[in-house]
Structure formats: C-alpha cells, structure tokens
C-alpha cells in the first residue's frame, strides 16, 4: 500500500513538473498558428511574386508565349533605354524635394501644437486630402491646371499669362509633385503632431524662462526631441514618393509631355500593360526594388545610429 501510494505520488509529481513545459509548447504552437495567416499572406503575395519577378526579369516573357531565358539582356537594355534613364532623372528630382515634404508638415505641426488660433480646423483641413484617392485628386487638379482651367483663368484675371502646367516639360513634373504633396502631407502632419505631444513641457517652460526665442526653442528642443519621428516620416515619405505617384501621373499627364513625368513605377506599368513586355517590366521592377531597398537601408541605419546616441 505504502509502495503503491509512493508510486502514485511520484507519478503525479512528475506530471506536475512536466505540465508547465507542455503548456509552454502548446502556447508556442498556438502563437505560431496565429502568426501563420499573416506569414502566409506575406509569403504568397510578397515573397513568391518577388522571386517570380526576379525569374521573369531574365526572360523575354511577353505574357503569351513561353518565357525564354535571355540572361542579362533586359538589364543591359534598361541601362541603354533613354526612357528609363529619363525616369531615373525624374525620380532624382522628386527625391530632391524630400526636405519640403518633411519641412512643410513639420512647421505646420509645430504651429498647430503651439496652439495657433483655429488649430483643430487647420489639422482637419490639412488631413482631408489624405483620405482622397489619387484618381479623385487627379480629376480635381485636371480641371484646375488644364490650359483653360481655373488656375489659368485666375492668373489671366490678375494680368499674368496662362501657363500650360501639365503640357509643358518644365512645369509638368513640378505640378505633379505639388499636387501629390498637397494630397499627402496631412499624414506626415498627423505623425508630427503625435510626436510633438511627447516633447517635455518642463523643458519648453525652462527654455521660455531662460529667454529662448521661438526659433531657438524649435531648433534646440523641439526638433531634437522628435528626431526619430522625423526620420521615420522621411523613410515612409520616400517610399511613398517612389510607389504612390502612379494614379496621379496616369490621370494628370499620362507620363508626358515626352518623358517629363515618367517615373520608374509608371514605366513598369507602361512596359507590362501597354507594351506586353512583362519580362522587361520585371527587370525594371527589380532595379526599382533594389534602389528603394538601398535607400530604406541607409535611412534605417541613420535612424538606428541616432537611436544609439
């Protein structure tokens, strides 16, 4: 009896010891199960297409015949394609405007945070265009910016000459950038307003007591305090600039005049959809992917370094 009891005790003790371990495994399995759908979506809709795209970029695939391996021909073609090279120049011009994309919402966010009259109204007004689709924004500005549109009527009424904003190569890209900036800066503005709420009120009060001027407060206290937020906004905005202009280009200029508003993402669509060259389009996609990955890596590296500091 004693022996039996001892065996029972020993068995239940072992079970008690192993229970947490078994429960841990189950929890781990369950955690994987919860992650699985998201992981599957990423693999199916991101990773596998990326690998397929890479494969197609080495073929002459035209969407109809079986793909034929052509080695680096597509990449060599891209390097000599004047339309692609022009699209890169346009992309660099677009990237060069990044400081405006960050600076404008930052300044406005600081002003709203500091309580300018009507701040809440301004915040809503600035953010409103961000909820509109690029096609709607394009349609609105098509009416405003066309040669006989409202903007030129206003200019003429003021005694100035009309400008073909969307039909002239020297103004078309900048018009597009301005419209896209108007349509999207509200998102950065909200991010900055959220970031500003973390700035220490005591520090701002101390600066005020020490006689710091407004600009000094911004430069030495506010901006350094939200530096990680600014860097995050810079990464997100850069990616958005390179991947979210399609709708606007499509509606407002169709890439013209000439190549003046063709960006790599628009060229990918042109080669894939209009020219029936998915293989070539895939090669351009790969180049764009590498450029974006490189840019994002640099920006993230800067962010991490500053975070360490």
């Amino acid at each position: 009896m004693t022996q039996t009891l001892t065996a029972k005790d020993s068995k239940s003790t072992a079970k008690a010891v192993s229970r947490p371990k078994s429960g841990g495994h189950n929890a781990e399995r369950l955690a994987y199960l919860f992650v699985l759908p998201a992981l599957a979506l990423v693999v199916v809709f991101r990773i596998i297409p990326l690998i397929w795209g890479l494969g197609y970029s080495f073929t002459d695939y035209d969407g109809m015949s079986a793909p034929r391996f052509v080695g680096l021909d597509n990449y060599i073609g891209i390097a000599h394609d004047p339309v692609f090279l022009d699209s890169l120049v346009n992309m660099l011009i677009l990237l060069a405007t990044l400081p405006i994309w960050i600076g404008l919402p930052l300044v406005l966010a600081i002003l709203i945070h500091q309580g300018v009259p009507g701040g809440k109204l301004f915040r809503a007004v600035y953010f409103f265009p961000a909820v509109l689709s690029s096609v709607i924004v394009g349609a609105i500005f098509n009416v405003l910016l066309r040669y006989d549109g409202s903007f030129n009527l206003f200019l003429k009424a003021m005694g100035f000459s009309a400008v073909d904003w969307l039909g002239n190569s020297s103004t078309a890209l900048f018009s597009l950038i301005a419209v896209q900036l108007w349509a999207t800066f509200g998102m950065s503005l909200l991010i900055f307003i959220a970031g500003l709420s973390t700035v220490s009120a005591e520090m701002l009060e101390a600066a005020k007591l020490d006689g710091a001027k407004l600009l000094q407060t911004w430069w030495y206290i506010v901006i350094p305090s939200i530096r990680p937020i600014i860097e995050f906004a810079a990464v997100v905005t850069t990616i958005g600039m390179l991947t979210s202009m399609f709708g606007l280009i499509y509606v407002l200029t169709a890439g013209g005049p000439g190549t003046s508003t063709i960006l790599p993402e628009f060229l990918i669509w042109l080669e894939q959809g209009k020219m029936n060259r998915p293989g070539y389009a895939s090669a351009i996609s790969m180049v764009l992917f590498l450029m974006m990955a490189g840019l994002a890596a640099i920006q993230i590296r800067i962010m991490s370094r500053n975070a360490d500091i």
Binding site: L145, R146, Y147, D148, A162, D164, W165, L166, G167, N168, T253, G256, P257
Partner: peptide, 8 residues
C-alpha cells in the same frame, strides 16, 4: 491649334 494641346 489652340494652346495646351499637350494637356488636352
């Protein structure tokens, strides 16, 4: 042609 053909 009228002005603005490239944007019409």
């Amino acid at each position: 042609y009228a002005e603005g053909a490239n944007s019409t």
